[in-house]
């Protein structure tokens, strides 16, 4: 750089052509300036600020000090963080396949054209997605109640004793149930719209070749919506790692089962707002963001490889 700069600086007056080029490049900047300003303000600045925060430590006694990468070192050794990550990873491995599986089945059923009352069915499956997550969780929370909720009523009516869905052993499954209920419709819509754009000539060709419905699904439909499957999976991975609303709201009903470090996001929230540990909270958030990015990227690479 310096070697390039020196002759330019040494030149007393720039020749006309470079000047014109200069003006032209500024015009370009002028056009993208509104975008760059907004982009920098809403995307880059928060990230930069989080990274900046993560390099300090603010203590009740002693104030703020620069600690370099100490917070990152601590996060890598933090049992509470890893336990939370393990929990959402388990959630991801169980809930996401179940949810996407159901969504795919529903989408294929709708697409098969053999369903009676198709649009009603489509809307009612999609409806839960339109319910805000907070409301949905509160509603399910009431149903899960063993004293006055639906579970309690079933127990009373049938004289049985169902296990408490909000006990520490079952609460993750209960959250999975809520999330599945909320997002099956959304994923179904992604799959269904991908299915709708498959050219009909392919089906006709398959029919002429004497292919059955199962064969059509495995040989035509699934390969054709591969991209949609990968996208839905990536969204679901990110959603699982960012699990927050459902456990945070159920926490009021099951404070002993859902700890303040139940998921990585809940952990950063309590670090920041109960513990005043903004710096460490930023660190955990960044580490979590990186992990999510890596996993989502790996899935994308794997998913797209065979499709290409």
């Amino acid at each position: 750089m310096t070697t390039l700069l020196t002759p330019a600086a040494a030149e007393p007056r720039p020749a006309p052509p470079p000047a014109r080029r200069d003006r032209r490049s500024w015009t370009g900047w002028g056009f993208i300036a509104p975008f760059v300003a907004v982009f920098a303000l809403v995307f880059l600045a928060p990230i930069a600020y989080s990274i900046y925060l993560s390099l300090f430590r603010d203590q009740l006694i002693g104030g703020t000090t620069f600690v370099g990468l100490d917070n990152y070192q601590e996060a890598l050794k933090d049992d509470r963080f890893w336990a939370a990550l393990g929990r959402v990873a388990l959630f991801l491995c169980v809930q996401v396949p179940v949810m996407l599986g159901i969504a795919l089945l529903v989408a294929l059923a709708l697409d098969s054209g053999r369903l009676y009352g198709r649009s009603f069915f489509r809307v009612s499956i999609f409806l839960p997605y339109a319910v805000p997550a907070v409301v949905a969780t509160l509603m399910w929370g009431f149903m899960y109640g063993t004293r006055f909720g639906l579970v309690g009523d079933i127990n009373d009516t049938l004289g049985i004793s169902l296990p408490n869905p909000l006990s520490p052993d079952l609460v993750l499954a209960s959250i999975g149930n809520i999330v599945t209920w909320e997002f099956v419709g959304y994923n179904m819509l992604i799959f269904y719209s991908a299915l709708r754009v498959i050219p009909h000539s392919l089906y006709e060709a398959a029919e002429i070749d004497g292919a059955g419905q199962i064969r059509v699904i495995t040989a035509i439909k699934l390969p054709a919506i591969r991209g949609a499957l990968v996208i839905a999976t990536i969204f679901s991975i990110i959603g699982s790692f960012q699990l927050f609303n459902e456990p945070a709201i159920l926490q009021d009903l099951a404070p002993n089962a859902i700890t303040t470090d139940y998921t990585p996001n809940l952990y950063t929230y309590s670090l920041s707002f109960s513990g005043q540990q903004h710096n460490y909270s930023a660190t955990v958030a960044i580490v979590m963001g990186l992990i999510t990015m890596v996993i989502a990227y790996v899935v994308q690479l794997r998913g797209m490889r065979k499709g290409a």
Binding site: Y49, G63, L138, I249, D252, Y269, F273
Partner: peptide
């Protein structure tokens, strides 16, 4: 407590976003 927590529940997402901007200042 319950209404406080409910409010917290509703404001969760925005609260998280705020978390990044709420920084600790030094107090002398």
């Amino acid at each position: 407590k319950n209404s406080r927590r409910l409010l917290r529940g509703i404001g969760l997402v925005c609260a998280l976003a705020l978390g990044a901007t709420a920084c600790g200042g030094s107090d002398d």
